[in-house]
């Protein structure tokens, strides 16, 4: 067996309560199967997600991180996802710049009706992280 398949990545997802978390629930209601690597933290809005959460998770040795909110225009809080989008653009670009692998930290939008899409996103990110291998950069060693 190759190293790639041995590796069972730990992925953390921050999902907004109103769209993406509901989309994840819908995937369940529809029994769409996807890998069991992701742990979800429910937040009111993607706008709630502070870059700290992501950096802390990377330090903890989490192999992949996903943040998902409502599609543009759909935000339950009207504009929280727009605020988040700016912040994440800079964080993502900076992390790439200092050499954190491109797919280690990902952002997307999933609506409450997109159970299928959610399962695809999770399958996709799990594959991505498996290809990348375990996180090493920024991981805190004691």
């Amino acid at each position: 067996m190759s190293r790639e398949t041995d590796f069972n990545p730990k992925i953390l997802a921050f999902l907004c309560n109103w769209c993406s978390y509901a989309g994840a629930d819908l995937a369940g209601i529809s029994r769409l199967q996807y890998p069991a690597n992701v742990r979800v933290i429910r937040v009111p809005c993607s706008g709630r997600v502070d870059p700290f959460y992501i950096l802390k998770a990377l330090q903890q040795g989490v192999d992949g991180i996903l943040v998902s909110g409502c599609h543009p225009g759909d935000c339950h809080y009207l504009s929280g996802n727009y605020v988040a989008r700016r912040r994440f653009a800079l964080l993502k670009k900076l992390l790439d710049y200092v050499g954190i692998e491109d797919k280690r930290v990902q952002f997307t939008w999933v609506s409450a009706a997109e159970g299928e899409r959610y399962s695809q996103v999770i399958k996709g990110i799990t594959e991505d992280i498996k290809k990348l291998g375990p996180a090493k950069r920024l991981v805190k060693k004691f």
Partner: peptide, 18 residues
């Protein structure tokens, strides 16, 4: 200031590709 404001038109090029 950019982080004290937002826009519906911002670029999403950094987001996960489908």
């Amino acid at each position: 200031a950019p982080l004290a404001s937002f826009s519906a038109e911002d670029n999403e090029d950094y987001m996960r590709e489908e």
